[in-house]
Design a protein around this nucleic acid. Structure first.
Length: 583
DNA sequence: GCCGTTTTCGGCCCGACTGTTTTCAGTCG
């Protein structure tokens, strides 16, 4: 798909125009178009001129530019701008606190063309005497450069969420706060986040702010105001705190949860309905009469919309669905009845069966599937045919002593680099569930990888494909997989795709999940637990599922155990029939 | 540059904090 490439060029054009000081609405038009292209599920290369222009934010001119790129591989306007403004000047915009106006001025007055050059210029004192720049501004730029060097990349939700919750706890303990909640992309459960947004109410805002900027893990205070403060923690994460009145808490929570695009669309709707929405509430316009804002629902109600859960607020069709009364009834954590991907000490897990079962029962589950690795994974003490059979006998014994809980007999079978499974069919035929996944040959071509997964899907006993892209967020790229082909095949055979709940994996991701639902592929949400505490990863898995518009009916492990077994057996029967028909 | 059941022209989401200013521009979210 060329969408992302074109989106990138559009946003670069926007930045270049900013540096030129062009009309800001024109700049916004490019930014908006870039965002919409980035989130578009259809490939633009197949679209006609009319279809292009029907994309929100794309008009005659930008449609022509998209076609220009598709035909020539470049956009003339973009190339011209790049000639005018050296590439390094763009990089100045990435310095926090330094925007287009100052970057432009620095480039024009002292010919700075990169961050390195800017640093040198500062050390040589070349910035003194420039209009609007005094010592404080110079200090801020230097600190901004430091911040940038320490890494401003997006961080794993699984790392940041616990930090955010910890800060909320400390604020509750040490400051006179009323309602307090984490907002921003954390609340939308985005897989990676840039900063932490916390929102609270208080009768003594100044006191709250004083406590906040002095929290023990704060290393720098960026802003310290009456209602808004920003700090950077020792880990280099920015945390913003806002204090609002009780009557505004809902509106503020809605506002600071975002996404930006979602909110802009709501506000545009509000303007058309003669209303004004800001972080303090919903107001009539003109007149300014308050129509609500204490609760988040007030905002949606004012626009005659049902409540839209945070995970859906990405402006990817949720507002349109809400208008039509077609919002999904999203799956919830307490609808999950069991975990279908769990390891024990038999392979690379940390606990014996008893400990794992006890932890699962404490989570309130009705069942788990034990899915230890197979022999191909030597490092994980993978099981051969004989040990797998032994493990299954142990599980049978354990089941005989359990009431109200069932251990499903399973395995996470390795899909070898040649595409064959790691154990013969005879070894896995009697299992309740077979989860297949790739652990080697990540560098293979898309054709090879896809072929391996397809052959696993067609195996008569495989019922789930685990962590289907193999990515480790921020550490390892997904392998080259033709997801479209894989999902179609999975739908055909009734094989489920896993949403791996480990915050480092989270694949399928929200985008692929939507694709899977479109093809009618069954889903499972599993934690891939190796240590009992990892059962708690389920919250991440369910949230990604929700971001992918998943309902309870789409999730196999939201079924009670009898129905789950029925589905798994039906999948096998279906495969057997297909194999017979083919022969 | 986009967009329209007020408009094909004239709007375009909205507010807080900082620093350098004597009333506001720049930046951010």
């Amino acid at each position: 798909m060329k969408n992302q490439q074109i989106a990138k060029i559009f946003s670069e054009i926007a930045e270049l125009l900013e540096l030129k000081g062009e009309n800001m609405f024109r700049i916004r038009a490019y930014q908006r178009a870039a965002q919409n292209l980035d989130g578009l599920s259809k490939d633009v290369s197949g679209l006609s001129r009319e279809e292009l222009e029907s994309i929100p934010g794309i008009g005659k001119d930008l449609a022509a530019k998209i076609r220009e790129y598709l035909e020539t591989g470049a956009i003339a306007k973009h190339e011209e701008l790049k000639k005018e403004i050296p590439e390094g000047v763009l990089e100045l915009l990435s310095i926090p606190g330094l925007g287009p106006k100052k970057a432009k001025m620095l480039h024009e007055k002292i010919k700075v063309k990169s961050i390195v050059e800017l640093e040198t210029a500062i050390r040589q004192g070349k910035l003194s005497g420039l209009p609007g720049i005094q010592k404080k501004t110079v200090d801020n730029i230097l600190q901004g450069i430091e911040l940038l060097k320490r890494g401003t990349e997006r961080r794993l939700l699984g790392r940041v969420l616990p930090l955010a919750e910890d800060m909320v706890r400390r604020m509750k303990d040490g400051a006179p706060v009323g309602r307090i909640e984490v907002a921003g992309s954390i609340r939308r459960w985005k897989e990676t986040v840039k900063d932490i947004d916390i929102l609270t109410t208080s009768k003594k805002p100044e006191k709250v702010m004083d406590v906040f900027v002095k929290l023990p893990n704060v290393s720098r205070v960026l802003a310290h105001g009456e209602t808004k403060s920003s700090v950077v923690t020792e880990d280099g994460i920015q945390v913003d705190l806002r204090v609002v009145e009780e009557e505004s808490f809902g509106a503020a929570l809605q506002y600071f949860t975002g996404s930006k695009q979602h909110n802009i669309k709501l506000r545009e709707m509000a303007v058309r309905a003669g209303l004004k929405i800001n972080e303090y509430g919903v107001f009539t316009e003109p007149g300014g009469k308050r129509k609500g804002g204490r609760e988040e629902e007030d905002v949606y109600k004012a626009l005659k919309l049902p409540y839209i859960p945070p995970e859906l607020r990405e402006d990817t069709g949720e507002i349109e669905a809400a208008l039509e009364g077609k919002l999904p009834d999203l799956v919830t954590p307490d609808e999950i009845k069991g975990d279908l991907h769990v390891h024990t000490r038999w392979s690379d897990g940390s606990h014996d069966l008893g400990t794992i079962v006890e932890a699962a029962r404490n989570k309130g589950y009705q069942y788990i599937a034990i899915t230890d690795h197979t022999k191909g994974l030597g490092v994980a003490h993978g099981l051969d045919e004989k040990r797998l059979a032994e493990e299954m006998r142990v599980i049978d014994d354990a089941n005989a002593k359990l009431t109200g809980f069932r251990i499903l007999k399973g395995t996470e079978i390795d899909i070898r680099s040649d595409g064959r499974l790691d154990l013969p069919d005879s070894a896995i035929a009697a299992l309740d569930i077979v989860v297949a996944s790739i652990h080697s040959g990540f560098k293979q071509t898309q054709e090879q990888i896809t072929k391996r997964i397809l052959s696993a899907i067609r195996n008569p006993f495989v019922s789930v494909i685990a962590h289907p892209t193999g990515r480790l967020i921020g550490e390892r790229e997904a392998y080259a997989i033709d997801m479209d082909t894989v999902l179609k095949e999975a739908a055909k055979y009734g094989v489920a795709m896993e949403i791996n709940a480990n915050p480092l994996r989270l694949d399928l991701n929200d985008y692929h999940i939507k694709m899977a639902l479109g093809y009618g592929v069954p889903l499972v949400i599993s934690t891939d637990t190796h240590v009992t505490t990892q059962f708690d990863f389920m919250a991440y898995g369910v949230s990604v599922a929700r971001r992918g518009w998943v309902e309870k009916k789409d999730v196999l492990n939201a079924l009670p155990v009898e129905l789950l077994m029925k589905r798994l057996n039906a999948c096998r029967a279906n495969k057997a029939k297909r194999v017979k028909a083919a022969s």
